[in-house]
Design a protein around this nucleic acid. Structure first.
Lengths: 207, 207
DNA sequence: GGGCTATTTTGACATATATCAAGTCAAACG
DNA sequence: CGTTTGACTTGATATATGTCAAAATAGCCC
C-alpha cells in the first residue's frame, strides 16, 4: 500500500462538469477517486448516450480502457472532486512484484464486471419503479459503506442522468419518485431523498 | 503460451444443457472454450433471469467470479462443447512471471467490461429492432473472426434466449425477425439467418 | 415416415412507458 | 427584490412492446 501511494504522486482536482477523460483519449492512467463523484457515459454516433456509472470516493475509474489503450467512454465530475492518478504501466509492473496488489487489481476488475451484469439485469428485466428502487438501495448501501447515512441521500445527479442510467425518461423517473413518496416509501425534496421504508424498498426488487 | 498450455491439463466436454458452473459455486478456474458455445445468465430471487452473454470458441468464461471467489452467474452449454480448465491460482501465479500473460489477462477483463457497457447502451437506449440488428451484427462479426461466414449465421439460441439477452419478449424478437425479412434485410429460416443487406443493418444501429 | 413436442410465427388487444405540453419551483443574477 | 434560467413535476395522449391465444413449423423419437 505504501508503495502504491508513492506511485500516485499526482493528485488532481476537477470542478463540476470537468472531464476526467473523453472517449477516444489515449489511456495512460487509472484514477482513484479521493473525494467527490464522477459519472461515466458511453456515446453513440447519433448522439444517444447511456450513463454507465456513478462513481464515488474510493472507487477506481478507467478500467474499460485497458483493453484497447483508448478510452471508450467518458468520465466527468458531478461535483468538485479530487483523484489520484495511477499510471497504468507502473501499476502493472508493481503488481508483478506485489502479489496482493495483483490479486486486488484482478478483483477490482472482476467486481466491475459483476456490477455491470447487475445493471444488465436491471435494464433487461425490471420495470421502471423496480429500477429506481434498486438504484436507491444501491446508493444507500454505498453511502453506508462510506460511513454516511443509509437513509438520507443527497443525489448528485439530475433526473435526466438517473433516467439515462436506468434506461428511462426523466419524466418517468420523476413520476416514480412522486409515487414512492405517495406510498410513504421515501421523502423527496428535489435531490434530497430520505428513505423511510428501506425494507419495503427491498421487497420491491425482490430481496 | 506454451507454459499456458501445460497449465491447462484438463480438457472437458459438456453436452447441450450441461452446466459449466452454477450461481453460488465456489470459483476455482476460468475456462477457455475450445469448441461449441455457452450462455451465461444471472438469476433473480423471484425467478427472473437475464442472459448476460453468449460465448463462443476462443472466449474466456468465468471472469465475474474472481471478485468474490464465488460464481454470481451460471453458465451452460448451448451445444456439445469442449473447454480447457485454467486453474485461477496457477494462472495468477504464472502471470507474475510472464508479463505478456499478465497484460493479456488485464486486457481480457477490460474487454469484458467494454462488452458489458455496450450491452448496457443497447438495453438502455435502443429500441427492439435496433437491438436485434446490433445482436446480429455482433454475431456476424464474431463469426467472421473465427473464419466463418459473416452473413450465414446458425443461431445456437432460441428466440426466448435472444429475448432475455436483449431485454425483449420472444414474440417481439420473432416479429423483428419477420419484419427484417419483409424489408429484405435478412433471410430467416428458424435458426438459420442469412444477412442480405449488412450495410443497411449497420445503418440501423447508427454506424 | 408418422406422430409428438417444443419452438416459432402471427393476430388481437392491453399496458407501461414515452412524448408533448404546461405549469411549478428554486437557485442564480442583475 | 424581480427576473431569468434550468430542473422538476404533473397531466393528457401516443406508441412500442407486452400479453394472451391460436396456428404453423420444425426437430425428434420410436
Amino acid at each position: 500500500m505504501k508503495r502504491l501511494e508513492e506511485l500516485s504522486n499526482q493528485k488532481r482536482s476537477y470542478a463540476t462538469g470537468d472531464y476526467l477523460y473523453r472517449s477516444g483519449d489515449r489511456f495512460k492512467s487509472l484514477h482513484a477517486i479521493r473525494s467527490g463523484s464522477f459519472k461515466t457515459r458511453v456515446l453513440h454516433e447519433d448522439g444517444r448516450e447511456q450513463v454507465t456509472g456513478f462513481l464515488m470516493a474510493g472507487e477506481i475509474i478507467g478500467l474499460e480502457a485497458i483493453s484497447t489503450d483508448v478510452h471508450t467512454c467518458e468520465a466527468l465530475a458531478m461535483e468538485d472532486s479530487e483523484v489520484c492518478e495511477l499510471p497504468y504501466a507502473k501499476l502493472a509492473e508493481l503488481s508483478r512484484e506485489i502479489p496482493s496488489l495483483q490479486r486486488h487489481l484482478y478483483k477490482i476488475m472482476s467486481r466491475e464486471i459483476v456490477r455491470d451484469q447487475g445493471i444488465m439485469l436491471l435494464l433487461g428485466s425490471m420495470r421502471a419503479e423496480e429500477r429506481l428502487a434498486a438504484f436507491l438501495l444501491n446508493l444507500s448501501q454505498r453511502n453506508a459503506t462510506h460511513g454516511m447515512s443509509a437513509t438520507q441521500l443527497r443525489l448528485r445527479m439530475s433526473r435526466l442522468e438517473i433516467g439515462s442510467y436506468l434506461g428511462l425518461k426523466l419524466e418517468t423517473v420523476s413520476r416514480a419518485f412522486s409515487h414512492f413518496q405517495d406510498e410513504g416509501l421515501i421523502q423527496v425534496k428535489a435531490r434530497a431523498v430520505d428513505i423511510v421504508a428501506l425494507s419495503r424498498l427491498r421487497e420491491m426488487v425482490g430481496k
